[in-house]
Simulated assay, not measured.
Amino acid sequence: MQKKLVVMIPAFNEQETIEEVVKGIPKKVIGFSKVEVLVVDDGSTDKTLENARKAKADKIVKHVKNKGLGNAFRTGLDNALRMGADIIVNIDADGQFNPKDIERLCAPVLEGKADMATCSRFALKEFQPKMPLSKKIGNWLFTKAISVAAGKKFTDTQCGFRAYSRETALRMTLFGKFTYTQEVFMDLANKGFDIVEVPCKLAREQRKGKSKIVKNWFDYGLKAMLIIARSLRDYKPLAFFGSIGIIIFAIGTLAIATAFGNWLFTGETTPFTSLIPAGGAMLVLGFALVMLALIADMLGRQRKIQEEILYRLKKQEIEKEEKND
């Protein structure tokens, strides 16, 4: 059976590297009868578009203005599916990853061993890139947080060099504008998709120019943690709201118990009088959050039904377009 690979490259102001990256995509990859390159220009103000055309990318989609990597990634997925992709590979436009690794990255997905294969820069010691300690710690912390939230151990969740099956791409539900790397892990892991890591060595350890995503590590960390928190809220509302509610309820109970215990032994609530209204408020708030957790969990089932409807509509629309072509 003939299979088609679409390699998509989201790009924003990458005029120095986009031509090199597009030309570096192998024309022949084992397991595929056709390989096409899709560039998503996310509102670049330099010569990214011209250089992508010069490199003869098979398809170029341009955002009128910069919408963020998350939006560019979703645009890429949608267009890759409409191009008839059986497997979609996403690779960064800065030239840090080696296009020759595309074949290795696609292999687990082609063989049916994974729904998504993601490059890991840290799985093998000899492949680990040199980077500032702060960046290394940040990568480790995010990877640890996502591994715990997703219920599976990973070594690198910040890398965008990945391969997705067609079914996986159709099933993804993403909302982040800023980035997509963490949200994809959360979305697919919580839907039961198989994710494997493929050790890869960077083609170059230092990118040309400054990162378009990580302009400030504190700001990046804050936005990424917000994405993780929202994913936990959406996929595990019972645990997310329930645990907070139980903790607040327990603190409120302890506050009132302290004041009550003092009254039993001394006949007075002083000096713990102020704990009574504070504890009462915490009991009410904690109870409300537990109720909210139960309601949110119930709504989570409705979300799954809506996602199934969205998947079927999307699949039907794309299949209809393919028949017309």
Rank of each mutant, 00 (worst) to 15 (best):
M8E: 08
I9C: 03
A11C: 06
E20S: 14
V21K: 03
V21M: 07
G24S: 15
P26L: 11
K27H: 14
K28R: 15
V29R: 01
I30P: 08
I30E: 10
G31K: 06
F32S: 08
S33K: 14
V37A: 09
V40G: 03
S44I: 13
L49I: 13
R53S: 14
K59E: 12
K59L: 15
H63K: 10
K65P: 03
N66Y: 13
A72E: 04
T75G: 01
A80H: 04
A80M: 05
R82E: 09
G84R: 05
A85N: 05
A93L: 03
N98T: 12
V109K: 01
L110K: 07
Q128Y: 11
M131W: 07
L133H: 06
W140F: 15
T143H: 08
I146F: 01
A150W: 04
S165H: 05
K177R: 09
E183T: 00
D187M: 05
L188G: 08
N190I: 03
N190Q: 09
K191Q: 15
K191A: 06
I195T: 06
I195V: 13
V198R: 01
P199S: 06
P199I: 08
L202Y: 09
S211Q: 05
K215Q: 10
L222N: 11
L226D: 05
I227C: 00
R230E: 11
R233G: 00
D234Q: 06
G242W: 01
S243C: 09
I246T: 12
I247S: 06
I248M: 05
F249K: 09
A257V: 09
A257G: 12
T258E: 00
G261T: 14
L264W: 04
T266Q: 04
E268V: 10
E268D: 09
T269M: 07
P271Y: 07
M282D: 04
L283T: 06
F287G: 11
M291Q: 11
A293C: 07
A293Y: 01
I295F: 11
E308I: 14
R312Y: 15
E322N: 05
N324W: 13
